[in-house]
């Protein structure tokens, strides 16, 4: 087996723009599948709507392309029905944090064993470049022609506050680290969130002097800082930086489907 066995190669080339980070993130994810030797038949891979949503076509597993913002709700049904299976969700920043925000915080609150990867390119790419809950301040987008005033979510803080028991962030410019981080999140028992900072030069970049993938990846590289390096800096120096690493890991808290099995015993139900 190689990571390519988790790719529906007969569906390549995929439809993402040249230089888009989604393909890189997909590779990091399937490498994690391969590293853990997960059987394809045991994986449910569920996506929402948006550029990232198209990934369910290309991953060779039990896949589902659901509705905008709702993959976690579908995944909850799949996981509760078959708790012994691996359930993985990929969602964009708009998909997970805007329309899907309610399902994001509740899946985290439940600590249900679903592996979420949020591809955060800070824009609605599929629909032509509208503002998203993570679009930087004063950035121009199709719906913020006078500069974005929409305050941003801190995805990591939001996930931790809601109850996720593994929360981490990496960047598409460090795909090897991202693959390792995703692998680690897959091994965690409970709701895990990996935020992958990504680039959309076609929509977000083009309107903000970052018009190609090289320029935009350089811009991302200038903004990111690994956690261990950030620790040694004084806060003022890194206040605009995006810190990468594992922010939260709670191995004690019981996972939702485990609690449900106990509930069935209490109800005297036969398994």
């Amino acid at each position: 087996m190689s990571y390519m066995d988790y790719v529906r190669t007969f569906k390549l080339p995929h439809s993402w723009c040249p230089g888009c980070g989604i393909g890189t993130i997909m590779q990091a994810m399937v490498r994690a599948f391969d590293a853990l030797k997960w059987k394809r038949e045991d994986i449910a891979f569920i996506t929402g709507i948006g550029c990232s949503g198209r990934m369910s076509t290309y991953v060779n597993a039990n896949t589902m392309h659901t509705t905008h913002g709702r993959p976690l709700a579908f995944a909850t049904g799949v996981k509760l029905a078959r708790p012994e299976k691996h359930v993985v969700v990929v969602s964009g920043d708009g998909d997970a944090l805007a329309i899907g925000g309610n399902h994001f915080i509740h899946a985290a609150r439940r600590n249900i064993d679903i592996k979420l990867i949020i591809i955060n390119n800070s824009v609605y790419g599929m629909t032509g470049g509208q503002v998203s809950p993570t679009t930087p301040q004063m950035f121009r987008t199709q719906t913020t022609p006078y500069g974005n005033i929409e305050p941003n979510f801190d995805v990591v803080k939001l996930a931790i506050a809601a109850g996720a028991t593994f929360v981490a962030r990496e960047s598409v410019t460090r795909p090897r680290n991202l693959a390792k981080l995703i692998e680690r999140s897959f091994q965690h028992k409970g709701f895990s969130v990996v935020e992958a900072i990504s680039n959309c030069h076609i929509n977000l970049g083009r309107r903000n002097k970052l018009k190609d993938q090289i320029t935009m990846l350089r811009w991302i590289n200038d903004r990111i800082i690994p956690m261990n390096v950030a620790k040694r800096k004084d806060p003022e120096e890194i206040k605009d930086k995006i810190i990468l690493g594992v922010f939260h890991e709670d191995k004690e808290r019981k996972e939702y489907t485990e609690l449900y099995e106990e509930l069935i015993q209490r109800a005297g139900g036969k398994k």
Binding site: H14, W16, G19, I22, G23, R176
Partner: peptide
């Protein structure tokens, strides 16, 4: 080092 393989969005 495989950096190119990892970064390539198109396999």
């Amino acid at each position: 080092c495989n950096f190119c393989v990892y970064q390539c969005p198109d396999f």
